[in-house]
Design a protein around this nucleic acid. Structure first.
Lengths: 109, 109
DNA sequence: AATCTTTATCGTAATATTGCAATATTAAAT
DNA sequence: ATTTAATATTGCAATATTACGATAAAGATT
């Protein structure tokens, strides 16, 4: 074994899990925060910003893109990456929903 | 190599990444949703609810607990697991902050 | 066209995760 | 004290992730 049994879960659960998984690495959190901070960006900046080699960062960017969290536009010989607002709104509303549902209840623990 | 270079990132980035990582599996999302739904719970219920073997679920619960997302109280020979409101509030506010910062800006993509 | 810059991909080693059968643990029930 | 029920731990095989050097690709610059 070793492979996640995605087929047993709803598509929504898989989508949220995929986005969370993509954010489940400090380098990718740092990338997202940097993209939010500068609003638009070129990968080279990130390579200078983070203590990781260029191929590693490229790989992390690819994962964030696969999860739909960032978009990338080619601009000359560079690539402009930025955060996908809709995806972030989706995550945000997901956790807001959970948090608000928790407030209305009494926990047993 | 192969191990995450956590030491290069801030403690906050690592904390958020750890929580996101714990949520980065559909089974664990399903567990969280079930815990929110029933508000309090015993692990056996989850085993019946999810299409995974008992040891696998026990392991997922352990990861959620390690990440601080759930709490577990012993009640007789069962264990009452429930969501940690504070942890969820932390994640929720983190994404709310990011989402609100994105709205104020113009994306280049 | 040759070179430079920027980003992606390949290959690979190290490590981590996923899933479960078997077994252990712990407390309740008989 | 046994047995039962609920959960955890161990051990292991299959697979995935992380990181990076080497190299490729593609547009810009000279």
């Amino acid at each position: 074994m070793g492979a996640t049994k995605t087929e047993h879960f709803t598509s929504r659960q898989n989508t949220i899990a995929n986005m969370a998984k993509a954010l489940g690495h400090p380098a990718r959190i740092a990338i997202m925060e940097y993209l939010v901070k500068v609003d638009s960006c070129i990968c080279g900046d990130i390579v200078n910003e983070l203590p990781l080699a260029q191929p590693t960062i490229s790989q992390h960017l690819k994962e964030l893109k696969n999860a739909g969290l960032i978009k990338g536009n080619i601009e000359g010989n560079a690539i402009c990456y930025c955060v996908d607002e809709k995806a972030m709104a989706k995550i945000q509303s997901y956790f807001e929903n959970i948090a608000s549902r928790l407030q209305k209840k009494n926990n047993c623990c």
